[in-house]
Design a protein around this nucleic acid. Structure first.
Length: 493
RNA sequence: GCCCCCAUCGUCUAGUGGCCCAGGACGAGGCCCUCUCAAGGCCUAAACCGGGAUUCGAAUUCCCGUGGGGGCACCA
């Protein structure tokens, strides 16, 4: 039984955009660390120079920040086990790789990639598994060192035992037995002097005292190799957990780049940057992704803090999950309804100003209660509330005509409503609604017809927040002017 | 081709041998409320992949199929 402090990590490679898969791979270890009073670390795995994307690291960090996933150690903020960028740890890996060579667990290999390609093709032709043929495996250590000293290009490979088997444990799946003969002499250190994942991640997890490794299931097949490496060093293994992949919405196949592009066409995205622009909230996104791979019996609406309180690694699920954007919408809308007026006002303001609207904060605060339960995404505020910040509205003339009536009749109704409103001392909804309802009664019309005309006249649109509350915020003068304008439009038809 | 993993309503999942003729949520349908759109309330349909085995008893354990996913690089 270990009494070591819990330390978990998120170890992405800066090779692309921050997406929901990354986010969830960061979320679970974060929750585990917070739940158990441990430490959460960010480590950048940038050992592949060919795939390095400038700016990717920043996008990763921005994404974590947006979601509220704070790391305790990592690039930029440091920590006792740094540096936290693998390219800044070259010597450490170099030293460890050679340690394995010295102990007989690894060997330098001088094979060219040309030769390796040829071997591989040959093997494929003979329907054999493509793997390293062991050419440099039995070179004497003295000869190998001599060739390295002479400046020959080399890699360091793990010397996989030819016989026996290894048993590894995945916390979510139990133990997995693998024949060593099925494993390859994998490269641990590349000829450019940088380590591969197999070496770098194992060394770092050990040196950084990581207790729980939560990572994608694409690593499951190399878990036996990783266990071999760890044991060759004489270390203890951390607890390993492999998260399943996200499947595309149809459930057929995993979420791919191509599929991500499709989603964008439908107004959805799996990239955090895009989701923010589309009006999704960190709360909604978090709630959505946390439940894809983690089961709760009920009460599935949670904030980050509530997730921390309830999280347990034993309720993580090993099966693949199809992403469902409708569910995202649901969680987003649900969290929006939970926000305070001030909070929501601050969150939707940028979407108005982004459209060039001049936002009056007093008005903004007043309309939030009207918009709150109508928003699925934050940018829906535009459709429901832009007219509050415009001087004029330009209703579609056709929309001003009430259902079942003609333009002339509609103009008459508008005129009567105008007079009723004009007679009121103020335009509060408490004052205006009763007389207009009375008019609906005595005229034999229905509320839809009368209020519909007023809605289009005052807001310029057929769908809006509640009419009387909206008119109150728009103000007496503007309302009267807009109704007058509507009457003119109707009379000209 | 070889290796590995997974398998409960359309989707995310609860379920750890009797509490399950399987619970929740999204979505779908219906009703109520209603000035539009929402929100809210109530209700309905909807699943243990197939076959064996173990057991008094299996969604839950084991085996075999089938289906799905992942991996087999000097990428992570």
């Amino acid at each position: 039984m270990s009494i070591k402090p819990i330390r978990t990590r998120f170890a992405p490679s800066p090779t692309g955009r921050m997406h929901i898969g990354n986010a969830r791979s960061a979320l679970y270890p974060f929750l585990l660390a917070r739940r158990l009073g441990g430490t959460f670390i960010l480590r950048i795995e940038d050992t592949d120079q060919k795939r390095f994307v400038p700016g990717a690291e920043q996008e990763l960090i921005d994404g974590l920040h947006w979601l509220g996933i704070q790391f305790d150690e990592g690039p930029g903020i440091g920590g006792p086990y740094g540096p936290y960028r693998q390219t800044e740890r070259r010597e450490i890996y170099h030293e460890h790789a050679w340690k394995l060579v010295d102990s007989g667990h690894a060997f330098p290999c001088f094979c060219t990639s040309e030769r390796l390609d040829k071997v591989r093709q040959e093997q494929m032709k003979n329907k054999q598994n493509p793997r390293y043929d062991g050419y440099c495996r039995s070179l004497s250590i003295d000869e190998a060192r001599q060739r390295v000293a002479n400046g020959e290009k080399y890699v360091i490979r793990f010397k996989m035992p030819k016989e026996g088997s290894i048993t590894v444990t995945d916390h979510l799946r139990g133990s997995i037995v693998t024949e060593n003969a099925a494993l390859d002499d994998s490269v641990l250190m590349k000829s450019d002097g940088l380590p591969t994942y197999h070496l770098a991640a194992m060394v770092d997890d050990q040196l950084m005292q990581i207790t729980h490794v939560i990572r994608g299931s694409e690593w499951l097949p190399s878990l036996p190799l990783h266990a071999h490496v760890i044991r060759a060093f004489g270390w203890d293994e951390p607890v390993f957990m492999h998260l399943s992949v996200f499947l595309k919405p149809s459930g057929k196949g995993k979420m791919s780049k191509r599929e991500a592009a499709e989603a964008i066409k439908d107004g959805h995205s799996i990239f955090l940057n895009d989701m923010k622009d589309l009006g999704y909230t960190p709360e909604g996104v978090l709630n959505w992704i946390v439940l894809m791979g983690w089961g709760v019996a009920d009460d599935d609406v949670m904030t980050l803090n509530q997730m921390v309180e309830r999280f347990t690694i034993d309720s993580l699920t090993p099966s693949p999950a199809a992403i469902n954007f409708q569910k995202l919408d649901h969680f987003n809308a649900t969290h929006i309804r939970l926000f305070s007026t001030e909070d929501l006002a601050g969150r939707i303001k940028p979407y108005f100003t982004r459209e060039g609207l001049n936002v009056n904060d007093d008005v903004l605060l007043k309309i939030v209660p009207l918009l709150r339960e109508r928003l699925v995404t934050l940018d829906d505020c535009l459709g429901f509330g832009s007219f509050f910040f415009k001087d004029d509205v330009s209703p579609n003339p056709e929309d001003l005509i009430a259902k079942g009536l003609d333009a002339k009749q509609s103009a008459g109704i508008a005129q009567r409503a105008y007079e009723i409103l004009l007679a009121q001392s103020d335009i509060s909804h408490e004052r205006c609604e009763p007389p207009l309802r009375a008019y609906v009664e005595e005229s034999g019309l229905n509320a839809n017809q009368v209020f519909g005309i007023l809605r289009v006249a005052t807001t310029g649109q057929k769908v809006s927040p509640p009419l009387f509350e909206s008119m109150e915020i728009i103000g007496r003068e503007k309302c009267l002017a807009r109704i007058k304008q509507a009457i003119e439009i109707l009379e000209k038809m």
